[in-house]
Amino acid sequence: MDKRIDLLEAIRSIAVKTPMNDIEVPEKVVGFGTIEYKAQTCSACKKCILACEPGALDMDSTLNMPDYVRATVPMEGFRSKNRETLVTLLQSLKQDYNFGDVLAVSVPEGLAGYGSIDWSAEQCIACEKCIEACPENCLTLKKVYKLPEIVGEIEAVPVKRTEKDWEPFIICFVCWECSHAAADLAGLMHLSYPATIRTVRIPCSGALEPIHIMTAMAQGADGVLVTGCLLHECHYGGDSPKAGNFMQYDFVKFWSDIFEEIGIGGRLYIDFASAAMGIKFAEIVETFTEQIRKLGPSPIPVKSEVQE
């Protein structure tokens, strides 16, 4: 779990704006999501709580009346007949009444069989174990990351002045198959591209972890560039939808969206070049440098200066 905590801390440390919107989680990105809970079908059996390793679920001794009166019977597939009956009865008794006025009801101590589940966005790793454990099918995973809830409020940071001799500083993660060869080829071809990038060789673009990107940003990079083999040509998976670069493409999209929300949008970019594409590699670096130049220096307050 330490890894998740480190990651959340890293996001908070590079955030310069309080995020306002939830982030859609691309299909291939796992480990991030929202557990949706249908209180009206829940039997408070606590199986999900027992199954949840990071401790993201807890029992709340209230009965979620708003969900009860909003549920549509029998559309929602009640397995528990008692719950279905209770919901039906409550709905037929409900006065012509504003939904907003319906409040959760606390369950008296000593009364077994009632309760609601509390889900903590921060702890959840979207492993879906709770969903497997739930006998009443009241949990579902929604591919949405509740960023505002997780990151919380961010204090405004002082605006940095752009120094006269400022040049963008970009960390470029290159996979050691095609894209590293492409960078080599660009050199062999004596192509010139801006001296803004520092390449870091990694086994596969898919091996790049979010924490690496965050660290780069936290340490003063103005942008992070990820390059990999051409799509469908990854050395670790090739055509498979699970190939490293396919996966990373979705990840980068996800993290770009997060960057957008926390005020450092446009500073993360992924592109692909094969070993024969020295020119394309130079172009990628040039385009991204140009983009960073427009954005200006990173607004993240740097903790330790990176010596060039």
Partner: peptide, 20 residues
């Protein structure tokens, strides 16, 4: 005796919540 008091109290809360 205790349980039925709890159940009724709980049901009363539900009724209050839905405007009964």
């Amino acid at each position: 005796d205790h349980l039925s008091e709890l159940v009724v109290k709980f049901t009363q809360d539900m009724l209050t919540s839905i405007g009964q």
